[in-house]
Amino acid sequence: MKLYNGGKIIAGMVAFLIAVTFPFWYGRGKTVSPPDLKLDTPTIEQLKEKRCVEPAAYMRASHMKLLVAWREGAVREGIRSYTATDGRAFQVSLTGTCLGCHSNKDKFCNRCHDYTGSKPACWSCHIIPEEVR
C-alpha cells in the first residue's frame, strides 16, 4: 500500500485528533467534584422548613426565568409581591429576597455560575449586601 503525501496527511490527522479530543487532555487525571453550594446562611439556618421560593429542582434550572418575570412585573406593572405555588408570599426583590436568604453570594450563586460559565450582568446596578458594608 502506497501513501501519497503520507507524511503531511498523517501530521494533519494527528493535529486533528489532538484538537478534537482536547477536553480529554485537559481533564486528564483530574477528578472534578461539582461545586459545593453552601446553604448555611444565618437566615436559612433559622428556617423551620428549608425551602426556596419554589421547589429546588425548579429553582436550579429555571431561577433566571423567575427573576426575569419578577423584573418585568416589578418594573413595568408595579407588581411587588409574589405568591409561590405553595401559597407563601415573597417581596419581589433580587437583593432583598434572594440574597436575603442566600446572603453568601460568593459561596452559592457565584460558585454555580462560575462552574457553568454563566455571567449574570445584574450586579452593576443591583446591590450585593456584603459589599456595601
Partner: peptide, 9 residues
Amino acid sequence: PADLLAVKN
C-alpha cells in the same frame, strides 16, 4: 431551561 449543573457534571 435545562439544569446546566447536571449537564456540566
